[in-house]
């Protein structure tokens, strides 16, 4: 189901949580609402669900204006950050809840409910836990039961609030991929909230980056990463080296291959893997010293210090594949040559 938000604003006292948000989400997408804490992403999710009322603006689900509709009429499935499983009910009763509270006319028979719940339990691969209580489950299991409970009412939109936030790192990795695959299988339009850019990149088909209650950029993970719309998005997604014409000599930057294409451009962001490090070819090349390096697995991260830029924050980070690093056989303190393959230029807006 498509979701259209127009001019959603929400204020908590003096704090502007959401500032005129408009957003279109096409059917079947798996969207990440990504941003630092306090950016308004959870509030936006709760407004879509109907758990919170916007001060102004409209929410349209599948073309219907549901702004005034209570949560129960919106046909959404909501997975809460801490799952909010009913602690006094078994796993089975938790999942069956949404089916059992329907008005008598619409309610399925107990046999159908029974089958449906077990189907869902199989879907989340936890059928063997059906008679346990929530407190007897691990975090990852609770998370999957909460998802099955939300899916039981056959929602046309699935909303997940920090779905992996409360989990251990190892469980989180597995569940991310599992959620992505489950989404492929069910194809329910889904939105999840996260503050973890890696998680958003890995799971989502579309990412919406929020900051201070505004949308900074919306796009596919590769659009967001390769063509960040602005300085904030570029900084927030992945690591980046920052060069500023206000501090860095334009001539020096030119020798690295950094040339502004637009007269307004002032700041250049360069991803570590867009920096090529090689053995110095001539003595005239600018002095850049390999200060330290770290092993990150498949890649090596190099800490480079250009001469004359001694401050610790001026360290340039570059990344290269493991094999390449061994080929170069560099040692700490070696002089190296560096070239910038690609950069994003931003003008500065105050």
């Amino acid at each position: 189901m498509s979701i259209v938000l127009s001019n959603i604003s929400k204020q908590f006292g003096a704090f502007k949580a959401l500032d005129s948000i408009s957003l279109d989400i096409a059917e079947g997408e798996l969207v990440a609402l990504l941003g630092p804490s306090g950016c308004g992403k959870t509030t936006l999710l709760r407004i879509i669900a109907g758990l919170e009322q916007a001060d102004s603006g409209e929410v349209h689900l599948q073309g219907d204006n549901v702004t005034q509709q209570p949560v129960k009429n919106r046909q959404i499935g909501f997975v809460f950050q801490h799952y909010a499983l009913f602690r006094h009910m078994t796993v089975f009763d938790n999942i069956a809840f949404g089916l059992r509270v329907k008005p008598r006319k619409e309610r399925l028979s107990e046999t159908v409910i029974h089958k449906k719940v077990h189907d869902l339990l199989n879907l989340v691969q936890l059928d063997w836990l059906h008679d346990r209580f929530p407190e007897q489950l691990s975090g990852g299991q609770r998370q999957r039961i909460a998802l099955a409970r939300a899916l039981a009412v056959e929602p046309s939109v699935l909303l997940l609030d920090e779905p992996f936030g409360a989990l251990d790192a190892s469980v989180r990795k597995d569940l991310r991929l599992w959620l992505r695959h489950l989404h492929h299988e069910l194809n329910v339009t889904s939105i999840f909230v996260t503050h973890d850019q890696e998680e958003a990149m890995e799971v989502a088909s579309q990412i919406v980056v929020l900051n201070h209650g505004r949308i900074e950029q919306k796009g596919s993970p590769s659009q967001i990463y390769d063509r960040p719309a602005n300085d904030f998005v570029s900084r927030f997604i992945g690591h980046t080296n920052i060069f500023d014409l206000a501090h860095d000599d334009a001539g020096w930057l030119k020798t690295l291959g950094l040339v502004a294409t637009n007269p307004n451009d002032r700041i250049a962001h360069v991803r570590p893997h867009h920096i090529i490090v090689e053995k110095p070819t001539s003595a005239e090349a600018p002095t850049i010293v390999l200060q330290d390096w770290q092993h990150l697995g498949a890649t090596i991260r190099l800490e480079l210090n250009p001469d004359g830029r001694k401050a610790p924050e001026s360290t340039i980070y570059a990344e290269m594949p493991n094999d390449r690093f061994h080929e170069l056989a560099l040692n700490r303190g070696d002089r190296v040559a560096m070239k910038v393959k690609q950069a994003h230029w931003f003008s500065v807006t105050a």
């Binding site: 129960k72 909010a84 009913f86 809840f97 509270v101």
Partner: peptide, 11 residues
């Protein structure tokens, strides 16, 4: 939270 969950499930 549990009450919100129930409401979101149509109760």
């Amino acid at each position: 939270e549990e009450e919100e969950a129930a409401l979101s499930l149509g109760a």
